[in-house]
């Protein structure tokens, strides 16, 4: 009895999270393309990775059939967050070590 009410509710709730996630991904991409320097670009793109993907995982978890797939999605999110944070640090350090040089490369891309 309860399930019949909750399932459509969860379905519509998941749309909110999915749309929010799409918003973060789009904002992150626009930020990466438009922000002036490497640090603010990294800031934009890692926000998209962590928040965008996190909201996507929440949205998809609300429609998942079982806890198993929810667990897998959360693990994927943790992995992407970890590698995103590490890659961000590496790129920022590289940027600081070769200031000027990378700026030119970034503009060319």
């Amino acid at each position: 009895m309860g399930m019949t009410v909750i399932t459509p509710l969860l379905y519509w709730l998941s749309w909110i999270f999915l749309l929010l996630s799409a918003g973060f991904f789009i904002a992150g991409t626009v930020g990466m393309l438009r922000f002036p320097d490497i640090y603010s670009r990294l800031h934009a793109v890692t926000k998209a990775d962590t928040l965008g993907l996190g909201l996507l995982v929440i949205g998809l978890s609300l429609r998942a059939d079982d806890l198993y797939s929810v667990g897998i999605m959360i693990l994927i999110w943790l992995l992407v967050m970890g590698s995103g944070a590490t890659a961000c640090q590496l790129l920022a350090r590289y940027g600081r070590e070769s200031e000027g040089d990378t700026e030119a490369d970034d503009v060319a891309s």
Binding site: L79, G82, S83, T86, Q89, L90, R93
Partner: peptide, 14 residues
Amino acid sequence: WPLLQAWSRLLAPL
């Protein structure tokens, strides 16, 4: 860098 070392310690077993 220590951060990369720590992360690869986690990634390699994975």
